[in-house]
Design a protein around this nucleic acid. Structure first.
Lengths: 159, 159
DNA sequence: GGAAAATACTTGACAAATCAAGTAATGATG
DNA sequence: CATCATTACTTGATTTGTCAAGTATTTTCC
């Protein structure tokens, strides 16, 4: 079917090689992220949860029952505020998330994951871990460390 | 000035660390791709070109005047066919791209970049190279090589 | 050579992301 | 203590991206 381990240059059928390793890395990062997102979306599809919605649920589970304001969730995602509101609307409609206006500061809205939300996450966990482990075994732990460190440097702001 | 090299855990304000390096890497890849895309979008904004449209122009420039079929472009992007058609519609409307139905196989549509399209790319090249070089200098060439190789392994299909 | 399958898009309907502006509540200032 | 600025969202309009079908060719196989 499809050959594995093609070089990115081959994958993109580029006639000329990349002008610089940095250019190649840029394309590689964006393309890999897309592949990962698609894999995740495929896993989530049966549950009617989008990757972003899944991330929100994960964040709320990580809060361990503590209330979390809407914009606090946004800041942990790569998502702008307007998107979060509607994402939470959807999750609340499915009763995976509960929201209530905060007593102390009535501008804020506190969000919680519901038991159903936790259940969905629990049902997904094994498949997610498996998918992740699949490619992780192809990398040495040194490679993984370098990868994570290098990406950190790419994201770092201009000095 | 303190270095802005926050760990991803801090950036995401996660209470607990990632369960595995693979999990951390996954988030790092997706998040980094997003940062890169946003940086690119900011550079392109004055020219009214989206990141995807920019990639199409780059691909067509790479073809060096040779005609390129619509789906051939799609295969080099991470984009589905329907998106490409409309992307090209937009680029053709701006006269950055020219299309004509192929004589030999009238199902195909051949695409070319126009002189205006090349001009836009040329105008953008310096800023792009600079932005890229900015973070590239923070990585040793060994790190870059490992990064590219590791991402290839992540993208590889299941065996 | 003519039906059936495959290819190369194209179109339309719909979900998701972004931007601009608006509202309610709170904090800061004079 | 009243006004101005800020914060924390929300809503609406626009754009972008995706999926499902549809159309025009071309190729394949009797």
């Amino acid at each position: 079917m499809s050959p594995k381990r093609r070089r990115l240059q081959d994958e993109l059928k580029q006639t000329r090689p990349f002008r610089s390793p940095a250019a190649e890395a840029t394309v590689a990062i964006v393309k890999t992220a897309d592949v990962l997102k698609r894999r995740l979306a495929r896993l989530l599809e049966p549950y009617g949860v989008s990757p972003q919605a899944y991330n929100v649920l994960r964040i709320l589970r990580g809060a361990n029952g503590k209330p979390m304001a809407t914009l606090e969730i946004a800041s942990r995602l790569i998502e702008q505020a307007p998107g979060i509101t509607r994402l939470l609307d959807g999750l609340e409609a499915k009763e995976l998330v509960r929201r209530e206006r905060c007593k102390d500061d009535r501008r804020q809205v506190h969000c919680f994951i519901t038991p159903s939300g936790l259940e969905v996450l629990r049902a997904l966990d094994p498949a997610l871990n498996e998918a992740e482990g699949l490619w992780a075994t192809r990398l040495s732990s040194r490679e993984l460390k370098t990868l994570i460190g290098a990406l950190e440097k790419v994201r770092a702001e201009e000095p």
